[in-house]
Amino acid sequence: MEVIFMLIGFSVLVAGGFLIAFTWAVKSGQFDDRSTPAIRMLFDEQKDEDMSKE
């Protein structure tokens, strides 16, 4: 049963990784605007080239 110690360690590590990833996503503003990106993706993107040149 001692393997549980190790498994718990892994599970906490993995879950903690997701928590950190989520926190990073929130802090980098990915959840600030949840309506516009859905619309934005529908436009034909020729402007992408121009924008990448900036």
């Binding site: 949840r34 619309i39 121009d50």
Partner: peptide
């Protein structure tokens, strides 16, 4: 509306001095 997003994010075409414009519809 959606058309506002389309128009306002094309501002760099109208005024080349604008490098990027991003609209937040809800806000």
């Amino acid at each position: 509306c959606a058309s506002c997003v389309w128009l306002l994010e094309k501002l760099p075409f109208i005024n080349p001095g604008i490098i990027r414009s991003r609209l937040q519809l809800a806000g």
